[in-house]
Design a protein around this nucleic acid. Structure first.
Lengths: 228, 228
DNA sequence: GATGGTGCAGTGGATCATCCACTCAGTCAC
DNA sequence: GTGACTGAGTGGATGATCCACTGCACCATC
């Protein structure tokens, strides 16, 4: 059973506003119209608008000052990686840059995991790797694959790598369905991952780094073919 | 002129709720009390509570289903790096892990910047480097230092590195004042950065990587002495 | 003319009461 | 059994209202 997310008014309004900001209709540094005016323009209640504002504020796109107004932040300069999902949704040319970073950090993680992981991690990695092979359907394989990468990040012993892995994964989310190609064949997906896990389990840092790099390069190539 | 942020009711409530979640009073997976009950418990209006909820929802700590309730997400497993600021505020032992990642990624950025940056970047780097030396006061030096790192990230030509740098910087923010030690002497701070910028400008990848690594290790050591 | 206080208009902050939409479990006719 | 229905409880959305804050024009004072 899957719970499908529903589009609330606030969701729609949030997306609309974000789009207007990202397209430059409301340029960075500019003040937005007043809440009362904007609410009227979009045909919603001011309270509703404020809920949408709250999210964009939390996301780092807006900046509010009581008694003055709300302005657009210079998000490209000051924003964090959590902006990526919305940036990708708005203009997919981010994907290439994300892939490059993913490749470098993935290699880093594999190396650290090889250096530091313990028996518990190794067992978990092997289990999750097996799950990739037995998953059915590209979607399930892709998710199983992601679980392996999460486990690799955990195996570094550094929780920040887990969060970073999630951040980069979230960045793919908006276009995930378009990136399912490398995972249509469970056997192939499994085979590509094996060298990485084996090198990590064997504790061979350089091999792990190299294996991760070539794994990521390979899947990346297949994905980009699809997008092109 | 500096605009000091004021604590609104929503701010206070948000922090309070976040703290209760991070301390495990409301464990991951559990449903929170209903909005009406919680609002009453904290002595605020339900609308106000919803504003606070909105932010925590956006931050990935909560998950709401219409007609059912609001539950705590498994943020440590599924959350992104944007959670770091609040995690650090709650338990500072994250700092060590953040430093390690910062070091690796900083080295990565320096290497890429050395490989790809152009004359424009070089000029900007030199200017910002000079600004470190002429800054007055630990706080200003620290900010000038950050600007150099932002510029290094921009010099990679990959915008994702800029966002990642910001994310890691945001993670320090809650304890920034405690990490000002390396920046009390502008000359010393400047001198530590020089090798990094010079290697990048010279286009020497390995030297840039090594210089960044040793720079980050050095500042990190000074910072950690302070915290201990 | 420069200074500093004051009032006002406009902004966002917070609340309240109320209704709508959704979910789920229990009920009941079939 | 099966399936439609109902009601209680949940979050979603609204509109009206008041509060707190900011910036500026104004003006008395010096």
């Amino acid at each position: 059973m899957e719970t499908l997310p529903r589009e609330t008014v606030v969701d729609v309004l949030e997306n609309r506003l974000r789009e207007e900001i990202l397209t430059g209709r409301y340029p960075a540094g500019d003040y937005l119209p007043t809440e009362r005016r904007l609410a009227e323009r979009y045909g919603v209640n001011r309270t509703t608008l404020k809920h949408a504002y709250g999210r964009l504020l939390q996301a780092g796109l807006l900046e509010t000052r009581h008694g003055v107004g709300t302005k657009v932040r210079d998000y490209l300069r000051l924003g964090g990686a959590d902006l990526l999902p919305m940036l990708v949704r708005h203009s997919p040319d981010w994907i290439g840059e994300i892939f490059e970073v993913r490749r470098s950090i993935g290699a880093l993680i594999a190396e650290r995991a090889a250096a530091r992981s313990g028996r518990k991690h190794h067992e978990e990695l092997r289990e999750l790797l097996a799950a990739v092979r037995s998953a059915e359907g590209g979607d399930a394989v892709q998710l199983a694959d992601i679980e392996v990468h999460r486990a690799l990040a955990r195996a570094t012993g550094n929780r920040v790598y887990v969060l970073l892995t999630n951040t980069l994964f979230h960045a793919y989310l908006p276009v995930r369905s378009a990136l399912v190609r490398p995972f249509t064949d469970p056997e192939a997906a499994h085979a590509r991952l094996v060298p990485v896990v084996e090198a990590v389990v064997a504790g061979e840092r350089d091999a792990a780094r190299a294996a991760a790099e070539s794994y990521l390069t390979a899947t990346e190539r297949i994905m980009l073919e699809e997008l092109a």
